[in-house]
């Protein structure tokens, strides 16, 4: 874990020292297909919009599946995230495999204030296990709505335990405040593109990469347009 933090930190430092050319020619471009899964109303779309535009939007229930992109320029690599934000509604479940097939990262999201979404997340995990080829998809467990932790029904420990037991990466985020969302995206990018050791357990708070991003993002590395 420490190694990972140092690695990310080093990457960050290097990124900082190199003059960044917007739209400059990077060495490599990697396509990272990620899919957001989970019950209705846990905040998948809000997370997706955070990932893609770094905004918060209270959205209506997703119809089918929304496709969003985000390009992230790192020092030696450009990550092009293709985010598939699936609908949590049951009527779309039969088409969901269409979206998570071939995904590099699958984010199973639950709402920390709703126990049943956590239970549901476990069903999603089992469903995923049937479909994905181990090693090709990195599965993350995400506890969202961390800003509402006063109404918490699922403890941090429960989330961590589940993740550990299944060998998943885990973090709690807040799409509303943007807390740990960019870090999550970066970590997803890393774990999917490099053969970086998969981070288990909660992403450390001191992994803050804020460095005066001009576009008003409260925390996070310099992300591309």
């Amino acid at each position: 874990r420490g190694l990972f933090i140092i690695r990310v930190f080093l990457l960050f430092l290097m990124g900082e020292t190199l003059p960044r050319v917007p739209g400059g020619v990077p060495v490599r471009t990697l396509r990272v297909k990620m899919v957001l899964l989970g019950s209705s109303g846990v905040g998948k779309s809000s997370l997706a919009v955070r990932f893609s535009k770094d905004q918060f939007r209270d959205s209506s229930p997703t119809v089918g599946c929304a496709y969003l992109t985000r390009v992230l320029y790192l020092e030696d690599i450009t990550l092009r995230f293709e985010i598939w934000d699936t609908a949590g509604q049951e009527k779309y479940h039969s088409v969901t495999p269409l979206y998570y097939r071939g995904a590099h990262a699958a984010l199973v999201v639950y709402d920390i204030c709703k126990k049943e979404t956590f239970v549901r997340a476990q069903v999603w995990l089992r469903e995923l296990e049937k479909q994905y080829i181990p090693g090709s998809t990195v599965v993350w467990l995400i506890g969202n709505k961390e800003d509402l932790s006063q109404n918490r029904e699922v403890s941090l420990q429960e989330g961590q335990n589940l993740a550990q037991e299944k060998g998943l990466s885990f973090t709690e985020t807040s799409a509303l405040s943007g807390d740990r969302v960019n870090e999550l995206l970066l970590a997803v990018g890393k774990s999917s593109s490099h053969d970086a050791p998969v981070q288990t357990g909660r992403l450390s708070d001191n992994l803050s990469l804020s460095n005066g991003v001009p576009q008003g993002s409260d925390s996070g590395p310099t992300f591309g347009p």
């Binding site: 939007r57 959205s59 209506s60 997703t62 089918g64 599946c65 929304a66 496709y67």
Partner: peptide, 13 residues
């Protein structure tokens, strides 16, 4: 639905 404003939607209909 405002859901279509977020990204590109692909849905069975």
């Amino acid at each position: 639905s405002s859901a279509f404003q977020a990204g590109e939607i692909w849905t069975p209909i």
